[in-house]
Protein backbone atom coordinates (compact mmCIF):
# COMPACT_ATOMS: atom_id res chain seq x y z
CA UNK A 1 0.00 0.00 0.00
CA UNK A 2 1.38 3.37 -0.96
CA UNK A 3 0.85 5.37 2.18
CA UNK A 4 1.86 8.68 0.67
CA UNK A 5 -0.77 8.48 -1.99
CA UNK A 6 -3.42 7.35 0.42
CA UNK A 7 -2.58 10.03 2.93
CA UNK A 8 -3.69 12.70 0.51
CA UNK A 9 -6.08 10.62 -1.51
CA UNK A 10 -9.28 12.29 -2.60
CA UNK A 11 -11.69 9.85 -1.07
CA UNK A 12 -15.37 9.14 -1.07
CA UNK A 13 -17.47 12.20 -1.83
CA UNK A 14 -19.56 13.57 0.98
CA UNK A 15 -23.10 12.27 1.23
CA UNK A 16 -24.99 15.12 2.71
CA UNK A 17 -28.35 16.64 2.23
CA UNK A 18 -27.55 20.04 3.79
CA UNK A 19 -30.60 22.11 4.56
CA UNK A 20 -32.14 21.08 1.29
CA UNK A 21 -33.00 17.47 1.86
CA UNK A 22 -33.79 16.76 -1.76
CA UNK A 23 -30.14 16.40 -2.77
CA UNK A 24 -29.89 12.75 -3.70
CA UNK A 25 -27.28 10.47 -2.23
CA UNK A 26 -24.14 10.20 -4.24
CA UNK A 27 -23.60 6.55 -4.78
CA UNK A 28 -26.91 4.85 -4.69
CA UNK A 29 -30.18 6.72 -4.77
CA UNK A 30 -29.64 8.86 -7.80
CA UNK A 31 -33.10 10.34 -7.88
CA UNK A 32 -35.32 10.55 -4.83
CA UNK A 33 -38.68 10.35 -6.58
CA UNK A 34 -38.70 7.67 -9.24
CA UNK A 35 -41.13 8.49 -11.99
CA UNK A 36 -43.53 5.69 -12.88
CA UNK A 37 -46.81 5.25 -14.64
CA UNK A 38 -48.50 5.00 -11.21
CA UNK A 39 -47.56 8.53 -10.19
CA UNK A 40 -48.35 9.94 -13.61
CA UNK A 41 -50.63 12.64 -12.24
CA UNK A 42 -47.65 14.37 -10.63
CA UNK A 43 -46.18 15.04 -14.05
CA UNK A 44 -49.25 16.46 -15.75
CA UNK A 45 -48.69 20.09 -14.79
CA UNK A 46 -46.64 21.83 -17.40
CA UNK A 47 -45.52 24.68 -15.17
CA UNK A 48 -43.24 27.36 -16.56
CA UNK A 49 -39.84 26.86 -14.95
CA UNK A 50 -38.02 29.93 -13.66
CA UNK A 51 -34.85 30.92 -15.44
CA UNK A 52 -31.95 29.94 -13.21
CA UNK A 53 -28.68 31.73 -13.82
CA UNK A 54 -25.36 29.93 -13.64
CA UNK A 55 -24.18 32.23 -10.85
CA UNK A 56 -27.18 31.15 -8.72
CA UNK A 57 -26.31 27.50 -9.21
CA UNK A 58 -22.68 28.22 -8.35
CA UNK A 59 -23.77 30.09 -5.22
CA UNK A 60 -25.98 27.18 -4.22
CA UNK A 61 -23.14 24.71 -4.74
CA UNK A 62 -20.71 26.78 -2.68
CA UNK A 63 -23.22 27.29 0.12
CA UNK A 64 -23.76 23.56 0.65
CA UNK A 65 -21.34 21.25 2.37
CA UNK A 66 -21.60 18.65 -0.38
CA UNK A 67 -20.72 21.31 -2.95
CA UNK A 68 -17.79 22.56 -0.91
CA UNK A 69 -16.50 19.01 -0.59
CA UNK A 70 -16.70 18.40 -4.33
CA UNK A 71 -14.97 21.68 -5.19
CA UNK A 72 -12.26 20.97 -2.62
CA UNK A 73 -11.65 17.59 -4.26
CA UNK A 74 -11.21 19.16 -7.69
CA UNK A 75 -8.88 21.89 -6.39
CA UNK A 76 -6.87 19.31 -4.50
CA UNK A 77 -6.44 17.11 -7.58
CA UNK A 78 -5.37 20.10 -9.70
CA UNK A 79 -2.80 21.10 -7.08
CA UNK A 80 -1.51 17.52 -6.92
CA UNK A 81 -1.13 17.44 -10.70
CA UNK A 82 0.69 20.77 -10.68
CA UNK A 83 3.06 19.50 -8.00
CA UNK A 84 3.77 16.41 -10.07
CA UNK A 85 4.40 18.65 -13.07
CA UNK A 86 6.77 20.86 -11.08
CA UNK A 87 8.71 17.80 -9.93
CA UNK A 88 8.73 16.24 -13.40
CA UNK A 89 12.17 16.37 -15.11
CA UNK A 90 10.59 16.36 -18.61
CA UNK A 91 8.55 19.51 -18.18
CA UNK A 92 10.87 21.68 -20.31
CA UNK A 93 10.67 19.21 -23.22
CA UNK A 94 6.88 19.29 -23.19
CA UNK A 95 6.77 23.04 -23.48
CA UNK A 96 9.19 23.29 -26.40
CA UNK A 97 7.99 20.36 -28.50
CA UNK A 98 4.48 21.61 -29.17
CA UNK A 99 4.15 25.06 -30.72
CA UNK A 100 0.52 25.82 -29.95
CA UNK A 101 -2.09 23.60 -28.40
CA UNK A 102 -4.60 23.69 -25.55
CA UNK A 103 -2.19 21.35 -23.77
CA UNK A 104 0.52 24.01 -23.97
CA UNK A 105 -1.92 26.53 -22.55
CA UNK A 106 -2.48 24.26 -19.55
CA UNK A 107 1.29 23.97 -19.14
CA UNK A 108 1.60 27.76 -19.18
CA UNK A 109 -1.20 27.99 -16.63
CA UNK A 110 0.59 25.43 -14.48
CA UNK A 111 3.75 27.51 -14.85
CA UNK A 112 1.89 30.55 -13.66
CA UNK A 113 0.59 28.73 -10.60
CA UNK A 114 4.07 27.33 -10.10
CA UNK A 115 5.37 30.85 -9.63
CA UNK A 116 2.94 31.20 -6.71
CA UNK A 117 3.09 27.66 -5.34
CA UNK A 118 6.29 25.92 -4.39
CA UNK A 119 6.51 22.13 -4.04
CA UNK A 120 6.30 22.29 -0.26
CA UNK A 121 3.44 24.77 -0.21
CA UNK A 122 1.44 22.81 -2.79
CA UNK A 123 1.88 19.69 -0.65
CA UNK A 124 0.76 21.63 2.40
CA UNK A 125 -2.32 23.03 0.60
CA UNK A 126 -3.18 19.58 -0.69
CA UNK A 127 -2.89 18.09 2.80
CA UNK A 128 -5.04 20.84 4.29
CA UNK A 129 -7.72 20.38 1.66
CA UNK A 130 -7.66 16.67 2.37
CA UNK A 131 -8.10 17.33 6.11
CA UNK A 132 -10.88 19.80 5.32
CA UNK A 133 -12.75 17.08 3.41
CA UNK A 134 -12.21 14.62 6.25
CA UNK A 135 -13.62 17.20 8.69
CA UNK A 136 -16.73 17.59 6.58
CA UNK A 137 -17.34 13.84 6.65
CA UNK A 138 -16.50 13.36 10.29
CA UNK A 139 -19.10 12.64 12.96
CA UNK A 140 -21.82 10.50 11.45
CA UNK A 141 -20.53 7.00 12.23
CA UNK A 142 -21.99 6.49 15.73
CA UNK A 143 -25.49 7.24 14.45
CA UNK A 144 -25.04 4.95 11.46
CA UNK A 145 -23.79 2.13 13.69
CA UNK A 146 -26.74 2.51 16.08
CA UNK A 147 -29.16 2.64 13.16
CA UNK A 148 -27.66 -0.52 11.70
CA UNK A 149 -27.75 -2.35 15.06
CA UNK A 150 -31.39 -1.32 15.30
CA UNK A 151 -32.11 -2.84 11.90
CA UNK A 152 -30.37 -6.06 12.90
CA UNK A 153 -32.43 -6.16 16.10
CA UNK A 154 -35.63 -5.72 14.08
CA UNK A 155 -34.58 -8.57 11.82
CA UNK A 156 -33.91 -10.73 14.88
CA UNK A 157 -37.34 -9.87 16.29
CA UNK A 158 -39.01 -10.86 13.04
CA UNK A 159 -37.17 -14.05 12.16
CA UNK A 160 -35.18 -15.09 15.25
CA UNK A 161 -32.01 -16.98 14.45
CA UNK A 162 -33.25 -18.67 11.28
CA UNK A 163 -30.14 -19.21 9.15
CA UNK A 164 -32.03 -18.99 5.84
CA UNK A 165 -33.64 -15.66 6.66
CA UNK A 166 -30.40 -14.17 7.93
CA UNK A 167 -28.59 -15.40 4.84
CA UNK A 168 -31.18 -13.69 2.63
CA UNK A 169 -31.04 -10.51 4.69
CA UNK A 170 -27.26 -10.18 4.75
CA UNK A 171 -26.89 -10.71 1.00
CA UNK A 172 -29.36 -7.94 0.17
CA UNK A 173 -27.72 -4.99 -1.62
CA UNK A 174 -29.05 -2.50 0.93
CA UNK A 175 -27.67 -4.45 3.89
CA UNK A 176 -24.33 -4.90 2.17
CA UNK A 177 -24.24 -1.21 1.38
CA UNK A 178 -24.91 -0.38 5.03
CA UNK A 179 -22.16 -2.70 6.22
CA UNK A 180 -19.63 -1.36 3.72
CA UNK A 181 -20.63 2.19 4.53
CA UNK A 182 -20.00 1.67 8.23
CA UNK A 183 -16.78 -0.23 7.49
CA UNK A 184 -15.54 2.66 5.36
CA UNK A 185 -16.62 5.41 7.74
CA UNK A 186 -15.04 3.82 10.80
CA UNK A 187 -11.64 3.70 9.12
CA UNK A 188 -12.11 7.08 7.48
CA UNK A 189 -12.76 8.69 10.85
CA UNK A 190 -9.83 6.85 12.43
CA UNK A 191 -7.64 8.17 9.63
CA UNK A 192 -8.88 11.69 10.36
CA UNK A 193 -7.95 11.28 14.02
CA UNK A 194 -4.46 10.24 12.91
CA UNK A 195 -4.24 13.28 10.65
CA UNK A 196 -5.15 15.52 13.59
CA UNK A 197 -2.49 13.65 15.61
CA UNK A 198 -5.07 12.72 18.22
CA UNK A 199 -4.19 9.07 17.58
CA UNK A 200 -0.53 8.28 17.27
CA UNK A 201 -0.12 4.48 17.29
CA UNK A 202 2.27 3.91 14.38
CA UNK A 203 1.55 0.18 14.12
CA UNK A 204 -2.16 0.69 13.67
CA UNK A 205 -1.90 3.42 11.03
CA UNK A 206 -0.99 1.23 8.01
CA UNK A 207 -3.89 -1.08 8.90
CA UNK A 208 -6.29 1.87 9.04
CA UNK A 209 -5.10 3.19 5.68
CA UNK A 210 -5.28 -0.24 4.07
CA UNK A 211 -8.78 -0.96 5.29
CA UNK A 212 -9.93 2.49 4.27
CA UNK A 213 -8.86 1.73 0.69
CA UNK A 214 -10.40 -1.76 0.75
CA UNK A 215 -13.73 -0.52 2.08
CA UNK A 216 -13.76 2.28 -0.48
CA UNK A 217 -13.19 -0.32 -3.23
CA UNK A 218 -16.15 -2.38 -1.96
CA UNK A 219 -18.28 0.72 -1.80
CA UNK A 220 -17.46 1.65 -5.39
CA UNK A 221 -18.21 -1.87 -6.62
CA UNK A 222 -21.56 -1.94 -4.83
CA UNK A 223 -22.38 1.51 -6.16
CA UNK A 224 -21.56 0.39 -9.70
CA UNK A 225 -23.72 -2.71 -9.35
CA UNK A 226 -26.64 -0.72 -8.00
CA UNK A 227 -26.38 1.96 -10.67
CA UNK A 228 -26.18 -0.64 -13.45
CA UNK A 229 -29.39 -2.17 -12.09
CA UNK A 230 -31.03 1.26 -11.91
CA UNK A 231 -29.97 2.03 -15.47
CA UNK A 232 -31.45 -1.24 -16.71
CA UNK A 233 -34.75 -0.54 -14.94
CA UNK A 234 -34.78 2.98 -16.26
CA UNK A 235 -34.29 1.82 -19.85
CA UNK A 236 -37.05 -0.75 -19.44
CA UNK A 237 -39.42 1.94 -18.15
CA UNK A 238 -38.52 4.22 -21.04
CA UNK A 239 -39.25 1.50 -23.60
CA UNK A 240 -42.62 0.75 -21.97
CA UNK A 241 -43.52 4.41 -21.84
CA UNK A 242 -42.47 5.02 -25.43
CA UNK A 243 -44.71 2.18 -26.53
CA UNK A 244 -47.62 3.58 -24.52
CA UNK A 245 -47.01 7.01 -25.94
CA UNK A 246 -47.00 5.69 -29.49
CA UNK A 247 -50.29 3.87 -28.87
CA UNK A 248 -51.73 7.03 -27.40
CA UNK A 249 -50.64 9.07 -30.41
CA UNK A 250 -52.12 6.48 -32.75
CA UNK A 251 -55.40 6.69 -30.84
CA UNK A 252 -55.40 10.47 -31.11
CA UNK A 253 -54.59 10.43 -34.83
CA UNK A 254 -57.09 7.74 -35.82
CA UNK A 255 -60.13 9.06 -37.78
CA UNK A 256 -62.50 6.72 -35.87
CA UNK A 257 -61.52 8.32 -32.60
CA UNK A 258 -62.21 11.86 -33.81
CA UNK A 259 -65.73 10.94 -34.99
CA UNK A 260 -66.80 8.74 -32.07
CA UNK A 261 -65.32 10.29 -28.95
CA UNK A 262 -66.50 13.41 -27.29
CA UNK A 263 -64.37 16.53 -26.86
CA UNK A 264 -63.76 15.83 -23.16
CA UNK A 265 -62.48 12.34 -23.93
CA UNK A 266 -60.13 13.73 -26.55
CA UNK A 267 -58.89 16.34 -24.10
CA UNK A 268 -58.23 13.64 -21.51
CA UNK A 269 -56.20 11.72 -24.08
CA UNK A 270 -54.15 14.82 -24.87
CA UNK A 271 -53.53 15.45 -21.21
CA UNK A 272 -52.42 11.88 -20.67
CA UNK A 273 -50.03 12.08 -23.61
CA UNK A 274 -48.57 15.29 -22.18
CA UNK A 275 -48.09 13.67 -18.79
CA UNK A 276 -46.37 10.73 -20.44
CA UNK A 277 -43.97 13.04 -22.24
CA UNK A 278 -43.13 14.76 -18.97
CA UNK A 279 -42.59 11.42 -17.33
CA UNK A 280 -40.32 10.39 -20.18
CA UNK A 281 -38.30 13.57 -19.70
CA UNK A 282 -37.99 12.78 -15.99
CA UNK A 283 -36.75 9.29 -16.83
CA UNK A 284 -34.22 10.73 -19.27
CA UNK A 285 -33.01 13.12 -16.59
CA UNK A 286 -32.69 10.24 -14.16
CA UNK A 287 -30.80 8.24 -16.78
CA UNK A 288 -28.37 11.12 -17.25
CA UNK A 289 -27.67 11.22 -13.51
CA UNK A 290 -27.17 7.45 -13.35
CA UNK A 291 -24.75 7.59 -16.28
CA UNK A 292 -22.80 10.40 -14.62
CA UNK A 293 -22.67 8.36 -11.44
CA UNK A 294 -21.45 5.33 -13.35
CA UNK A 295 -18.74 7.38 -15.04
CA UNK A 296 -17.66 8.83 -11.71
CA UNK A 297 -17.58 5.46 -10.00
CA UNK A 298 -15.61 3.92 -12.87
CA UNK A 299 -12.96 6.63 -12.54
CA UNK A 300 -12.90 6.16 -8.77
CA UNK A 301 -12.53 2.41 -9.26
CA UNK A 302 -9.55 2.87 -11.58
CA UNK A 303 -7.94 5.38 -9.23
CA UNK A 304 -8.47 3.33 -6.08
CA UNK A 305 -7.48 0.04 -7.75
CA UNK A 306 -4.25 1.57 -9.02
CA UNK A 307 -3.44 2.42 -5.45
CA UNK A 308 -4.78 -0.68 -3.76
CA UNK A 309 -3.21 -3.20 -6.16
CA UNK A 310 -0.01 -1.17 -6.67
CA UNK A 311 -0.66 -0.56 -10.35
CA UNK A 312 0.80 2.89 -9.91
CA UNK A 313 4.22 1.34 -10.53
CA UNK A 314 3.24 0.63 -14.13
CA UNK A 315 1.27 3.84 -14.69
CA UNK A 316 2.66 7.32 -15.36
CA UNK A 317 3.00 9.59 -12.35
CA UNK A 318 -0.09 11.54 -11.54
CA UNK A 319 -2.52 8.90 -12.85
CA UNK A 320 -4.23 8.75 -9.48
CA UNK A 321 -4.71 12.52 -9.32
CA UNK A 322 -5.80 12.71 -12.97
CA UNK A 323 -8.38 9.93 -12.55
CA UNK A 324 -9.64 11.53 -9.36
CA UNK A 325 -9.90 14.85 -11.14
CA UNK A 326 -12.04 13.31 -13.90
CA UNK A 327 -14.18 11.58 -11.26
CA UNK A 328 -14.54 14.87 -9.37
CA UNK A 329 -15.53 16.67 -12.57
CA UNK A 330 -18.28 14.13 -13.27
CA UNK A 331 -19.42 14.48 -9.69
CA UNK A 332 -19.58 18.28 -9.74
CA UNK A 333 -21.41 18.20 -13.08
CA UNK A 334 -23.98 15.84 -11.58
CA UNK A 335 -24.35 18.08 -8.56
CA UNK A 336 -24.72 21.05 -10.90
CA UNK A 337 -27.61 19.31 -12.68
CA UNK A 338 -29.27 18.36 -9.38
CA UNK A 339 -28.85 21.88 -7.97
CA UNK A 340 -30.28 23.43 -11.13
CA UNK A 341 -33.32 21.19 -10.94
CA UNK A 342 -33.71 21.91 -7.25
CA UNK A 343 -33.59 25.68 -7.79
CA UNK A 344 -36.08 25.39 -10.64
CA UNK A 345 -38.50 23.48 -8.42
CA UNK A 346 -38.21 25.93 -5.51
Amino acid sequence: MNNNTLMNSPRKPIILDESDSKVPHETTNTVTKTPSVENLNQFTNNEIKPLIQKIDIMKHIISTMAGKDKLAKIIKCIIDLIRIYILSPNKSNITHKQKFSPFKLIIYFAGLIRSVLSVSSSQWVSQQLSIFRYALRFGGTPFRVIDFVNRLANQYEKHGLSWEEWNKYLVKTDTLQNIVDIYYRVFDELDFLYKLKILSNKKLYPIVVKHEAISWEYDILLGLQKNCKLLKENRQKQIELNLKLQTQNLLLDSPENSTQSSLSQEFALFEKAGAMKNLLNELKYEQKLIKLDLARLSMDLLANSSDLFHWDRFLPKGSYAALSLVSGSFNIYKYWCVSKKQLENK
Binding site: L16, D17, E18, S19, S63, T64, M65, K68, A135, L136, G139, G140, F143
Partner: peptide
Protein backbone atom coordinates in the same frame (compact mmCIF):
# COMPACT_ATOMS: atom_id res chain seq x y z
CA UNK B 1 -28.35 16.90 15.67
CA UNK B 2 -27.73 15.07 12.39
CA UNK B 3 -29.35 17.93 10.47
CA UNK B 4 -27.28 20.42 12.46
CA UNK B 5 -24.04 18.60 11.63
CA UNK B 6 -25.02 18.50 7.97
CA UNK B 7 -25.13 22.29 7.66
CA UNK B 8 -22.11 24.47 7.00
CA UNK B 9 -23.06 26.97 9.70
CA UNK B 10 -23.60 24.22 12.30
CA UNK B 11 -20.31 22.53 11.60
Amino acid sequence: LIKFLDTTAGR
